[in-house]
Design a binder for these strands. Structure first.
Lengths: 115, 115
DNA sequence: CTAGGCGTTCGAGTGGACTCCAACGCAAGT
DNA sequence: ACTTGCGTTGGAGTCCACTCGAACGCCTAG
């Protein structure tokens, strides 16, 4: 089952309370349900866009409690702000990279033509 | 002088060879030149878009040597690939966040109206 | 019955990127 | 002269997010 995270990390996430205790089969092995996978995918996306594990824990606590909608909203909105800022920074960096790459290409081509 | 990095980190960057030895004034203090700042800004941008310090070191070595254009190009292109991928992931996450936020807003509003 | 292989547990270890600290130097203000 | 305050150094320490290891359980194949 690929979710973009190693088994080790998955187990670790469970240990630190990011995941509710995953149900075990008769043999003691984890049986991930639909909802588990859904939740894990959300976590992976939050994590891969730079949310700290600590903040994911805070969010997880709120979700588990079933209440704290306002706080959850605040967390998500803050993260959205961060992601948006990162997006802008990345776009800028991308432009810069394109320029540099172009200039290297030009330099290389010029050197080739001198041969 | 704000470049998006602490003094500590700046000194550390110098120590680990990311920066050439910065010129010191008569009093022993660093005097950053135009080119230094330029270079630092590039580093900050690469770093903030997820390039590892190690890779920045590799790049710095190549730049310092003055040669290795092909390798530099490869490094930059690889990073561009990574940044593009991250951009896509972030955009996806952003959409997801927007949805979640909307749904929280709806839930909150509905609850308010019940009062 | 044994061996192999996978999954389990929790504590410990790792790697990356800072971040801090103590000791010191120098220059200006009182 | 003395304190304040900033900057310098290199080593050490911290924080984060994994990642690994050792001991164990359970099933299946031989």
């Amino acid at each position: 089952m690929k979710v973009g995270i190693t088994e080790h990390t998955l187990r670790w996430y469970e240990r630190i309370g990011l995941l509710d205790r995953i149900e075990r089969g008769a043999d003691g092995r984890r049986r991930f349900g639909e909802r588990d996978i859904e939740w894990i995918l959300l976590l992976v996306r939050l994590r891969s866009t730079g949310m700290s594990v600590r903040d994911m824990q805070r969010y997880a606590v709120l979700v588990r409690s079933g209440a704290g909608e306002a706080e959850r909203l605040a967390l998500l909105e803050e993260h959205r702000r961060v992601v948006r800022a990162a997006l802008v920074a990345q776009q800028e960096c991308l432009d810069l990279l394109d320029n540099k790459i172009r200039s290297y290409r030009r330099a290389t081509r010029a050197a080739d033509e001198e041969q």
